[in-house]
């Protein structure tokens, strides 16, 4: 126990400098993300931000998450963003002009207010020296009068990865299993939405009665304005004269 405690206090100055430098990088890259005109530059700022946060995770005794952060976020998610940006060729300048006059100012004011209230609410109780390992409430929780060592003790006992793994497969096993549903949906969703071209015949069940396609829905070049709310006027464009063939048969087939 004592070596851990010593480590925790001795490492203080290093932690402070790490926090100052990495925190500045994180803040700067976040500002860059919202101010950069070029979307690709914004994505690179996002990578920088994720890497900075990964360093903070390591400092905060979350070694496993630090690695996951680099692999999943910086390695996969941002690459996906960049891939889509490149695929669509939208690295061009995109204007920062406001949609509504004054929207930027309003948004900034809202952001500052949000920051002040969130920072005051969250950080308020945790600015003292005792906060390194816990608020008073948390200290009371430990109860047995030991000096609070924070996560260092937990990690020293089993190692961060083992600790997280055990939790994941005991207390959180149901949540862990449930994420499989999420991943299946994501995979299906990407296929449904992303399939480049499809056989129109595939979307119509063989042997069922189907009305002709709606105007603008069967061809790829659907006019952008279609389906807009201005559908008030009755439109005379229905290709009439197609008697609904074999209603009785269709009825039988639609019975479920």
């Amino acid at each position: 126990m004592t070596p851990v405690l010593a480590q925790a206090t001795e490492g203080g100055a290093a932690e402070l400098w790490t926090f100052i430098i990495v925190g500045a990088v994180a803040l700067g890259s976040a500002l860059g993300l919202i101010l950069m005109r070029n979307a690709v530059h914004a994505a690179l700022m996002l990578v920088l931000n994720f890497l900075a946060i990964a360093v903070l995770y390591a400092v905060l005794q979350a070694q496993f998450l630090a690695v996951i952060q680099v692999i999943v976020y910086a390695g996969a998610i941002v690459v996906l963003f960049l891939f889509v940006l490149m695929l669509l060729g939208v690295s061009r300048e995109d204007s920062l002009t406001a949609r509504v006059p004054g929207q930027k100012t309003m948004a900034s004011i809202v952001g500052v207010l949000l920051f002040v209230s969130l920072a005051a609410a969250t950080a308020g109780p945790f600015l003292g020296d005792a906060s390194v390992c816990g608020s008073e409430a948390a200290l009371e929780g430990t109860g047995d009068g030991e000096p609070c060592l924070g996560l260092a003790a937990v990690n020293a006992a089993e190692g961060n990865l083992r600790g997280v793994g055990f939790l994941l497969f005991t207390d959180y096993v149901w949540a862990f299993e449930v994420t499989s549903v999420l991943l299946v949906i994501a995979a299906i969703g990407a296929i449904v939405l992303g399939r480049r071209r499809e056989d129109p015949a595939e979307l119509v069940e063989p042997g069922s009665t189907v009305l002709p396609a709606r105007p603008g829905e069967d061809d790829a070049a659907a006019a952008p304005g279609d389906g807009a709310p201005d559908a008030g006027a009755p439109d005379a464009g229905r290709p009439d004269g197609r008697p609904d063939a074999e209603p009785s048969r269709a009825e039988g087939e639609e019975r479920t």
Partner: peptide, 16 residues
């Protein structure tokens, strides 16, 4: 997530 995909089911309909 499932509802986002179902909302966007009409791939050629801009509104969807």
């Amino acid at each position: 997530l499932a509802l986002y995909v179902m909302t966007g089911l009409a791939r050629r309909d801009m509104a969807s």
